[in-house]
Design a protein around this nucleic acid. Structure first.
Lengths: 214, 214, 214, 214
DNA sequence: GATGAATGAGGGTTCATTCAT
DNA sequence: GATGAATGAACCCTCATTCAT
């Protein structure tokens, strides 16, 4: 599931490998920094290497090409988002639909905000062709987790939990960037969370109460 | 037929001008085609010119630079979206909130689908720095139109129509791309419309019934 | 001596030709204006045509190419300079060397100042390869005129009037631009004239008094 | 050997740096060669790079753009001229005015001739807009040095040494190019030096003897 | 004659990637 | 392993010149 470019997370063995790990991390962090300060367009391998304090050559020893670098960053972001949603769902497996809605929205926004610096740039990356697999992975995990939570909700029956989960996921992954950066003022994070929660709750309620014919 | 950058919507005068118009249009359409087939990264002025059947020089006679080209395309798209929403709102000024929700969702999705070819690429453009003004324009128009319609809805009172309008706009402009291209399969346009409508309706209902403390 | 591109100065015959003349003049003046305001680098045929109020095509009907345009301007300038010097020399054929020096310096500076706007740009042109013929023409005329005046000066005998004339011409054509635009402040035209006169007078005096062995 | 843009006049350290130095020098020399053979108009970065035996990319690693390249060449030339004049003045601080005149003329011509290949092209560069600072630097140094030497001349008092120094500088920097390349034949270097010296000597004499009213 | 749209070679510049040291 | 100088394809853009109308 990881691509060859992220030798992260593996058990470290020797000092040599430790240094390698440190280097990879430095490059990784430098990428995020450059992304934040110069944007996707201003990002080039030389600049990343310089910011990481290594030479371009070294960069290419750990990441086969520029794409791999960006994928690694995007991957970590999406994995974090998916994990946050899964965690929220797991912790609310038998809760009420209302609570689930609130928990999921909160968890997603927390994770999103934690990387607020990069996320706009990441969305640019994610729209470039080959990131689909990554995005699919994240949304699939989200849909699965939310779907499972909906199916086991203590106070409601959903005719099609999967469809509802899909809609909520789409609203989350799609709405939030627009929410954060365009329509609502930057400081309105609180309000965004509140409104999203209301929207999700009432949407779920509608699905429970048979308002919709499906 | 109309494009934002040509001041030429008037009765044609000379063969000279007709030729110009044809050329601008050809370039404009070529840009959309290249965007669809090669993506934003694969788009370069030479390629656009070739596809338009003109020389690079000609391209630069009508668009001062590459950005201007992309802006023109994006502008047309966003203007179309905003206009569609405004029209839907105007036609439902004194309708019920439910009907408004349905009309807005439908109008937006119609407009979006009409340019389904380009819209993914357009979202890439819109994330590049200087498109903010364009996006702001479109979302402002949407917020204003929806806000006005909510304020004059026949069956409901909204404590803060502007905030609700903002949320709906964010959900529309943010959700739909994700909806259309990632989570739901391409053919699911119908379903997307249905779910979005439910979400909007119930969200509006929640705001009417005082469920939310605001 | 005129090259084919300047049909100026010929007797006009028909209204058609008069219009032509007006057009050539307009283009000619436009060239000077663009040269003054945008410099040699900022000068292109389209801009000149626009400033002249004609189309590029028309421009190319009167001047076969860009070079011809610039040559025409440079030619007029250099012809004016040479004529001014010749006139001053003719009017001082039997005067004293001192008076000749003064008259030549004054005449040259007057002519130069009259076209102060363009002359810096003209010097750029003149340094491009093919202007040598033009410059040679002007300096040859200057050398011939000054040489003749020196040879017939009422108060002095010059061992080699031609050599002296060459030196003075070189000093004139070379010094003045530097004088006007770099070393002396712009307002120092008076002072420049005074110093140049002193230099010329004393140089001539040196040649008369046998200070120099030649 | 020294060029203005390289901060590398220090003891060589690594093969890395030595290679860099060799490359910068190669590019620098190639620029001069191309300038000599193809002129300013025929000079483009590709051609320079090819002549230097490197790729364009390499060229841009050492000079941020084409201008910088030309500036570097012009700067070296002007610095050399200014230095030559300063040296001549320093060595004749308490000499007679006559000797000073001779020394300065000789020094300037020596320096000029040493780079005879490029100087015509350099004068083209120097007329492009942003070279003023460079030229001002050189003429200021010349004026200052000559002024000081005049003020301390053993056999003369000058009412306004600065003005005289300005005039001589203008005559030097302005006359010589015309001298060398236009009016006098190339081989006449000797004669040019002789005449210029006479002109300078007599001009200085005129200022000493009170001929001029200033 | 006049027009100005069209041409396209050519120039400056960038940057992902390689490889000798 | 690390370095960073070198590479060169590719891109954006300009402008002298032509030619159909």
């Amino acid at each position: 599931m990881e691509n060859g470019s992220s030798p992260l997370l593996n058990p470290r063995k020797s000092p040599r490998q430790e240094r390698s790990i440190a280097t990879v991390d430095a490059i990784f962090e430098a990428t995020i920094q450059v992304l934040s300060s110069d944007g996707l367009i201003g990002l080039n391998t030389t600049r990343v290497a310089r910011r990481a304090g290594v030479s371009v050559g070294t960069l290419y020893q750990y990441y086969p090409n520029k794409q791999a670098l960006l994928f690694a960053v995007l991957e970590r972001h999406l994995v974090a988002l998916a994990a946050a949603i899964e965690k929220a769902c797991d912790e609310n497996l038998t809760a009420k639909a209302d609570e689930l809605a609130e928990a999921v929205v909160k968890a997603y926004l927390r994770a999103q905000m934690a990387q607020a610096e990069v996320s706009p740039a990441l969305y640019r990356i994610s729209l470039e062709l080959d990131a689909r697999a990554l995005i699919d992975m994240a949304t699939r995990r989200s849909v699965a987790a939310i779907g499972a939570a909906l199916a086991s909700a203590s106070d409601a029956q959903f005719a099609d939990p999967h469809l509802v989960a899909q809609t909520l996921t789409a609203a989350l992954f799609g709405t939030v960037p627009a929410f954060c950066h365009r329509v609502l003022a930057p400081a309105d994070g609180r309000e965004a969370e509140k409104q999203l929660t209301i929207m999700f709750r009432s949407y779920l309620a509608a699905h429970q109460s048979g308002v919709c014919g499906s």
